[in-house]
C-alpha cells in the first residue's frame, strides 16, 4: 500500500483537527501549488488495482469549458464552482449557498443543469461544461437572454445567471414548455428579490416566439 507516501501521516484518525494538522505538515513540504500534473496514467498502483490516484496536493487537470480545453491546477477538494470562479475567473457562475440548494452556481454538464458547488472539479473531467459566459454575452444575446432583459427578470441579478442556465436547458429539451414546466425548470433556483413571475413570463415569451431576440 502506497498510501503513506501521499496521505497525511495521521490520516487514519477521523478527527477533523488532527487531520487538518496533518494536512498542514504535508502542505509545507510538498507545496500546495506545484505538483506533477495528473493524467490517466499517473502512477498507477497495479497491485492495488488503482487506475488513478489524484491528490491530496494540487494537480493540473483539464476541463472542457465552453468548448475550450482549460488547464487548472487544483487540489481534489476544489469544487467545480471554485475552480471556475477562483482559478479561471469565470465569475458569472455565482456562489450563494455552497450546498446545492439555491441554483446560483448552475452550469451545464453535457447539456444538463447541475449545481457546480456539489461537483468536484476533477469529476467534471471528460464532460462538456457550459457556463453562463458560454451561453451568452452582452454582445451575443440569446432570445432567452433578450427576453430576460425585456421582461425585467433580474433585479439584483445575483440569482439570474443560474436562472438562465436552468431555463435555457429546460427550453432546449422542451421547446413547447408551458407555465408548469418553466416553474419546475427553476424549482432549484432561489431568487430573494422575487423575480419569478418575470422569469416565467420571459421564458414563455420565447416559447411563443414572441421575442425575436438579438441573435
Amino acid at each position: 500500500m502506497k498510501h503513506d507516501k501521499h496521505g497525511p501521516p495521521d490520516s487514519r484518525a477521523i478527527s477533523r483537527r488532527a487531520f487538518i494538522k496533518g494536512a498542514g505538515a504535508i502542505a509545507a513540504t510538498t507545496g500546495l501549488i506545484r505538483t506533477p500534473p495528473a493524467s490517466a496514467d499517473a502512477a498507477p498502483d497495479a497491485q492495488d488495482g488503482i487506475v488513478e490516484r489524484i491528490g491530496p496536493g494540487a494537480q493540473t487537470i483539464e476541463l472542457k469549458i465552453n468548448g475550450e480545453v482549460k488547464r487548472v491546477t487544483v487540489e481534489p477538494r476544489v469544487t467545480l464552482l471554485r475552480a471556475l470562479r477562483d482559478h479561471l475567473n469565470l465569475t458569472g457562475t455565482k456562489l450563494v449557498c455552497d450546498r446545492g440548494a439555491c441554483g446560483a452556481c448552475t452550469v451545464h454538464l453535457d447539456g444538463k443543469p447541475v449545481t457546480s458547488c456539489m461537483v468536484l472539479a476533477l469529476d467534471a473531467r471528460g464532460h462538456e461544461i457550459t457556463t453562463i459566459e458560454g451561453l451568452l454575452t452582452p454582445d451575443r444575446m440569446s432570445p432567452l437572454g433578450a427576453a430576460f432583459v425585456e421582461h425585467d427578470a433580474a433585479q439584483c441579478g445575483f440569482c439570474t445567471p443560474g436562472m438562465m442556465m436552468s431555463m435555457a436547458a429546460a427550453l432546449a429539451s422542451n421547446p413547447k414548455a408551458q407555465l408548469e414546466d418553466v416553474k419546475r425548470a427553476v424549482a432549484g433556483n432561489i431568487c430573494r428579490c422575487g423575480t419569478y413571475p418575470h422569469v416565467f413570463a420571459a421564458a414563455l415569451s420565447v416559447v411563443r416566439g414572441g421575442n425575436r431576440g438579438e441573435s
Binding site: H3, H6, G7, P8, S11, R12, I14, R16, F19, I20, A23, I26, A27, D48, G49, I50, V51, E52, R53, I54, G55, P56, G57, E75, P76, R77, L120, L122
Partner: peptide
C-alpha cells in the same frame, strides 16, 4: 473541508477492498 486523495479502482473487487480500509 479537509484534504483528501481520490482513487479510481480498476474494478469492483478492488473498490470493495479499498473501501474496507479505514478513512476511505
Amino acid at each position: 473541508m479537509n484534504r483528501f486523495e481520490v482513487l479510481t479502482p480498476a474494478d469492483l473487487a478492488h473498490a470493495a477492498r479499498l473501501l474496507a480500509r479505514q478513512g476511505h
